[in-house]
Design a protein around this nucleic acid. Structure first.
Lengths: 141, 141
DNA sequence: TATTGTTATACTCTATAACTATA
DNA sequence: TATAGTTATAGAGTATAACAATA
């Protein structure tokens, strides 16, 4: 299972550097699928601290890719939304990364590609959880 | 395939922050399995620049986890080797991450775990390539 | 000249602590 | 008092450019 440590290298390779940190596009994907989401939720989902997510959102807003809106029902809270430009930015990036990934996948055999395909729903599920339970990584540190 | 963007979040969650960057343990794994390896090779394999890898090796050496040795046959080159302490550091970290990952995997169904298991060899292969060919990510930027 | 690696420098990202505003 | 978020600050990581040593 230690292949997990090497997966970020694959992401680095298909995802050109210098244009966005590791959590940026994942966060944008969450925003696209989920609509209006709170800073705290985004932070938990992506494994960063609340201030860290606040700063990431700063960068998205500054780039014109997202907007902050005050929640009218709980005025302490902020909800974040992707702008049209943000959606465009995200799709452009996914398209570049998908091309690069295709080139890598080309070197696998048909059955290897099929194996990865079959695992995608499970991986998707794995990446969708917001919380760790007690006894998980944080507790071991 | 855009699940790829979210995989680093899983790694962040099973790999406690603040103790090592994303490339650090992947590099240590490469060193453990490969013996003596050059800076340039390490850099390509992990998708970082040569100076970036040189600096990562600095940190490993400073921590006592690796040593630099001049290559006697090509005296421009340096080969990097894990120390015994480095091997220990790596194994401790893998063990912590594996525990955390197990907790996550527990929430999947048996067939989902089987699907991921079947994909591991292919993922392993995907992460083992050193180079991107022409026309890959770098060319799209 | 080309290659291997390091050093110098600057910038991005993200964490912790302290703070403000609202519940 | 507790919660949502921001601001201030500092440190880690990594890139580009310039450099040194060897081939």
């Amino acid at each position: 299972m230690s292949v997990m440590f090497r997966l970020p290298a694959v992401v680095r390779k298909i995802n050109p550097p210098g244009k966005g940190e590791s959590a940026r596009f994942a966060t944008m994907q969450t925003l696209e699928s989920g609509g209006e989401i709170r800073i705290t939720d985004l932070a938990q989902r992506h494994g960063v601290t609340q201030p860290g997510m606040s700063q990431l959102v700063d960068r998205l807003v500054e780039a014109g890719d997202a907007v902050r809106k005050r929640d009218d029902f709980d005025r302490r809270a902020v909800v974040v939304e992707l702008t049209d430009q943000g959606r465009q930015t995200l799709h452009d990036r996914i398209s570049v990364a998908a091309d690069a990934l295709d080139h890598l996948l080309d070197r696998l055999t048909e059955s290897e590609r099929a194996a990865i395909d079959s695992a995608l729903p499970a991986l998707q599920k794995l990446t969708s959880w917001t919380h760790l339970e007690d006894g998980d990584a944080a507790a071991h540190v």
